[in-house]
């Protein structure tokens, strides 16, 4: 194992982390502000990827795909919120889990009816389809673009929440919603906006993931589970927690997958290591989450106030 390989793998972990962060940010905002558990967040990510792929296949333009997909997912999110979810804010978490579980079934089958059961094609723009030489290895340029775009969006989110009036209301709404309402702010509209923002981020992640992951029914669930791991590990409701949680989960998962089997081979015989390595690597992040929760039930970076 060389240092170059290790750094490449860290970069891979970072890229997974960035993708997870885009999803976790939306999920944790909705959870923190509306106290709402949205299992259908992964479905919004899937819809974003499908919108992007549909536009891409019609126009052959990657940029246009994003320009359409992100607002479309945002609108879809707000529509779902207005039609169904708004009625569930006052209910307990179980009802929310159940209703959004129903939405997952619906969206998975819907894309199957519209786009068929097989994966849909989407590709990275020509300029980003090559590799960049780094640490002695070719690193896919497109993955660099994901890291950059994700960090840019993360910074924008930070700026919006901490420096703008809307952000101030969002922060206030998270701590004392009644007070914000009493001050004459339309809380219901604010909720819809936050939900739309989360959906937009999910759509953005779906668009970014389209060229590397296959766009297919059910693509939202595996990543939803990972996202839940992220926000619970990081501390629910906190953007900061979502960011660090995503990076930790991304890097632990990638490094574990990459080096654990090789590492185990040092101690165990080959066939045993080949069997145990992947098994342990795949439970690593769940182990991480269980340990974190057992020690700090509120997560690593809980919301400080409220």
């Amino acid at each position: 194992m060389t240092l170059g390989l290790f750094l490449t793998q860290t970069l891979n972990g970072l890229q997974l982390g960035v993708l997870l962060f885009l999803l976790a940010a939306g999920l944790t905002l909705v959870f923190g502000i509306m106290n709402f558990v949205n299992l259908a967040h992964g479905s919004l990510y899937m819809m974003g990827a499908y919108f992007a792929a549909a536009v891409f296949n019609a126009t052959n333009s990657f940029v246009l795909a994003g320009v359409v997909a992100v607002p479309a997912t945002m609108l879809l999110g707000m529509l779902v919120e207005r039609v169904a979810l708004i009625r569930l804010y006052q209910r307990d978490h179980l009802d929310q889990v159940l209703a959004t579980f129903g939405l997952i079934l619906f969206f998975n089958e819907l894309v199957r009816i519209i786009w068929g059961p097989a994966s849909v094609y989407m590709n990275a723009p020509e300029a980003l389809s090559g590799t960049v030489m780094l640490f002695g290895f070719g690193y896919p340029a497109y993955r660099f673009a994901i890291i950059a775009a994700g960090l840019f969006v993360g910074a924008g989110l930070y700026w919006m929440i901490h420096k703008t009036r809307v952000g101030m209301l969002i922060r206030a709404g998270a701590t004392k919603p009644e007070m914000v309402a009493a001050l004459g702010v339309n809380i219901s509209l604010l909720n819809t906006l936050v939900f739309g923002l989360g959906a937009g981020l999910a759509g953005f992640a779906g668009w970014m993931a389209g060229p590397i992951l296959s766009v297919q029914p059910g693509m939202g669930e595996p990543i939803l589970i990972l996202t839940l791991v992220v926000i619970v590990t990081g501390g629910i409701g906190s953007i900061r927690g979502a960011f660090y949680g995503a990076m930790i989960v991304g890097i632990v998962d990638t490094i574990g997958r990459a080096f654990l089997p090789t590492l185990l081979r040092e101690f165990l015989e080959r066939s045993l290591a080949q069997a145990a390595g992947p098994a342990i690597a795949s439970i690593l992040i769940y182990l991480l989450m269980a340990v974190v929760l057992a020690v700090r039930p509120q997560g690593l970076f809980p919301v400080k106030h409220g």
Partner: peptide, 20 residues
């Protein structure tokens, strides 16, 4: 022999190993 978890959609880590 590299075995990846059944639900793992991303192979960046493994492909880097292969390239190495």
């Amino acid at each position: 022999e590299i075995y990846t978890p059944l639900n793992q959609p991303d192979f960046s880590a493994e492909l880097a190993q292969v390239a190495a």
